[in-house]
């Protein structure tokens, strides 16, 4: 029986004529639907944006003659400030997040024991609430006569200025919003450091700081790098924090893109800005991934 049916399977032809015509192997044939989905849902919109960035100003069609005008406008104007603000705010946010999250990650994996699950849950819960709602919560907290200043005023008669609508406030909002994206990969990274390896380094004469530098940090690096990338990429795209908490004092690049697409009705300019942002962030991510090859760190290669 088995001998008879085996050749039958091997010689069975694809049912669809197009597949036979394409001479695809079964694996490639099965990947076709996903490839088609990715092309339509992911690559095509991206291609449209890239193509639009080469269209003349304020045009709404891809049928015009390609031009570099939008890029010229961007490089001759002051838009670079928005780029710098976005990158700068994201960098500050990520550095602060790293400093805040490492001790928490360490605590979650080694110190808090059975309380870790509860704490992890507490860090997750805010994610269930819309970002805008949470940011307006901060407004209520910090606004004049709000939770903080109102309480200080009624209890101690202290009348202070609000901290709202400052750069610091934007950073606070971003640190708050993107914390889970740094914390969880980092916790995973820290939990990958075996206790015996830390003990061994300590036993071999290393000080606590040397154990951290030589063992903890390099072995937790995959998680740390992923946390850095995740929160950085998200923070570069941050918009509402600057709008709500910063009171439009700072215009991040994403805000510029939004303005170009909506208020200014200048799709090609917006598209060019988006392309530049993708290039900048993409290059940074590539550089980081090249510097920290995750497989090498894990000793897999």
């Amino acid at each position: 029986m088995a001998e008879a049916s085996a050749p039958a399977i091997a010689t069975r032809q694809p049912r669809f004529v197009i597949l036979r015509w394409l001479k695809l192997r079964p694996g490639a044939a099965h990947a076709l639907p996903v490839i088609a989905f990715l092309l339509i849902g992911f690559a095509a919109p991206l291609a449209w944006v890239i193509m639009f960035s080469f269209m003349p100003e304020r045009s709404f069609s891809l049928l015009n003659e390609p031009t570099l005008d939008n890029y010229v406008t961007i490089f001759s104007g002051t838009t670079y400030r928005s780029f710098l603000w976005s990158l700068g705010l994201a960098a500050v946010t990520v550095i602060l997040l790293a400093l805040i999250c490492y001790p928490i990650a360490y605590g979650l994996t080694r110190v808090f024991g059975r309380w870790s699950t509860l704490l992890t849950l507490l860090f997750t819960i805010p994610l269930f609430v819309s970002e805008n709602v949470r940011l307006y919560g901060w407004i209520l907290f910090f606004i004049k006569n709000g939770v903080m200043l109102g309480t200080l005023k009624s209890l101690f008669g202290y009348e202070g200025e609000t901290w709202l609508f400052t750069e610091g406030m934007i950073v606070l909002g971003m640190v708050y919003v993107y914390m889970p994206f740094m914390l969880f990969p980092m916790t995973l990274g820290v939990s990958m450091v075996p206790n015996e390896t830390r003990d061994a380094a300590f036993d071999l004469g290393a000080s606590r700081w040397q154990v951290f530098k030589e063992v903890d940090l390099p072995l937790a690096m995959p998680g740390i790098v992923i946390g850095f990338l995740l929160s950085f990429v998200l923070a570069v795209g941050a918009l509402v924090e600057a709008k709500v908490l910063g009171g439009q004092r700072v215009i991040p690049i994403v805000h510029e893109i939004e303005l170009a697409f909506t208020y200014a009705q200048n799709w090609p300019l917006g598209a060019a800005l988006a392309v530049l942002l993708m290039l900048v962030v993409g290059t940074l991510v590539m550089l980081v991934l090249r510097r920290f090859d995750l497989d090498t760190i894990l000793g897999r290669r």
């Binding site: 075996p194 015996e196 390896t197 003990d199 061994a200 380094a201 300590f202 036993d203 071999l204 004469g205 290393a206 000080s207 030589e214 063992v215 390099p218 072995l219 090498t296 760190i297 894990l298 000793g299």
Partner: peptide, 17 residues
């Protein structure tokens, strides 16, 4: 780290990196 003793661990605890 300040004892003149050294341990070979069950897992060996080598530094994989």
């Amino acid at each position: 780290n300040r004892r003149p003793t050294c341990m070979v661990f069950q897992s060996l605890a080598l530094f994989p990196h």
